[in-house]
């Protein structure tokens, strides 16, 4: 397979032979307007791996994430979640596949006029029947789990508050609880810290990283803050103009790699807070694909 050629290191050093949860095979997306968002994307994610997806605005990060749970229809290529081919599904089967994928959003995307509890329980919508969800009569196990998750994200007392009464950080915690309430096999996060201050951003990233460790849950986090990505991801995938131009461990994210992803910039300033790195040495470990 081509990805093995592109980046042997990912599979030797990072996946450690763990079971593959998600596999993308030459995924492409062209919008109706003719904009080519993604070109021939292939990679796989093993259980428990937190992937930071970085790249400039408009590189296709958001499209890529949304293609995985088919909120955006891929134009070609295939996506495997475990044994299931997601690109072939429709209707009920698609909804049943979606419930296996938890998603966290940029602007939290909570239903603001519902209570925190209803928002968390909405993670079970793919499982419960229509009348149960309509009457808000969820199975006791779902409610127990929701209380447990709210406790875990530190919002145990807020369950009957309306979502719009919470602060940004609290809302994102509810968003995380909602995603986890799905008992997902994969977590997708679309710029989860974009609307948060730096401190809360780190807390949220730490929380996501923590739950992924606890539950051996793989995650793809689309994030524009390179330092956050380096600190909290196990692996970085760099996207530029819809193509994967970097795929390696955070430590391999050298100046040259960043220039390849984002274009020329004084990267010393960006990376001041992260540990000093031997660029030349690390660069040799990760393969950087130069764009033509």
């Amino acid at each position: 397979m081509s990805r093995d050629v592109l980046n042997p290191l990912t599979h030797i050093n990072i996946s450690n032979g763990k079971k593959t949860v998600l596999e993308l095979k030459s995924l492409s997306k062209t919008y109706k307007t003719g904009d080519r968002a993604l070109t021939d994307i292939s990679f796989s994610v093993p259980a428990g791996q937190v992937v930071g997806l970085i790249g400039p605005s408009g590189a296709g990060k958001s499209s890529l994430i949304r293609c995985i749970n088919r909120l955006v229809e891929p134009s070609s290529g295939s996506i495997y979640l475990g044994e299931t081919e997601l690109t072939k599904l429709s209707g009920r089967a698609l909804r049943q596949a979606r419930r296996r994928i938890g998603m966290i959003f940029q602007e939290y995307a909570l239903v603001e006029r519902l209570t925190v509890m209803e928002n968390v329980l909405s993670g079970r919508l793919g499982y419960v029947s229509g009348w149960r969800s309509f009457l808000r009569r969820y199975p006791q196990t779902d409610i127990d789990q929701a209380f447990g998750l709210l406790e875990r994200v530190g919002l145990g007392d807020h369950y009957n508050k309306r979502a719009d009464e919470l602060s940004g950080g609290q809302r994102q915690r509810v968003g995380i609880a909602r995603a986890l309430e799905q008992n997902p096999e994969l977590l997708l996060a679309d710029e989860p810290t974009a609307s948060l201050d730096p401190k809360t951003s780190r807390q949220i990233m730490r929380l996501i990283q923590g739950v992924c460790r606890e539950m051996n849950l793989p995650a793809i986090i689309n994030i524009h803050d390179v330092v956050l990505a380096q600190n909290f991801a196990d692996r970085i995938i760099g996207l530029r103009a819809g193509q994967v131009v970097f795929d390696g461990p955070p430590s391999a994210l050298s100046h040259k790699a960043l220039t390849c992803i984002y274009g020329a910039e004084d990267w010393d300033q960006v990376q001041q807070s992260s540990e000093s790195q031997n660029d030349e040495f690390l660069f040799s470990n990760a393969k950087v694909l130069e764009l033509t």
């Binding site: 749970n69 909120l71 909804r95 979606r98 994928i101 239903v111 919508l125 969800s133």
Partner: peptide, 15 residues
């Protein structure tokens, strides 16, 4: 965004 988020949980049209 809120619609998309609920759709992403695997909810049906009515839900």
């Amino acid at each position: 965004n809120q619609v998309e988020a609920v759709r992403a949980t695997g909810a049906s049209r009515v839900q």
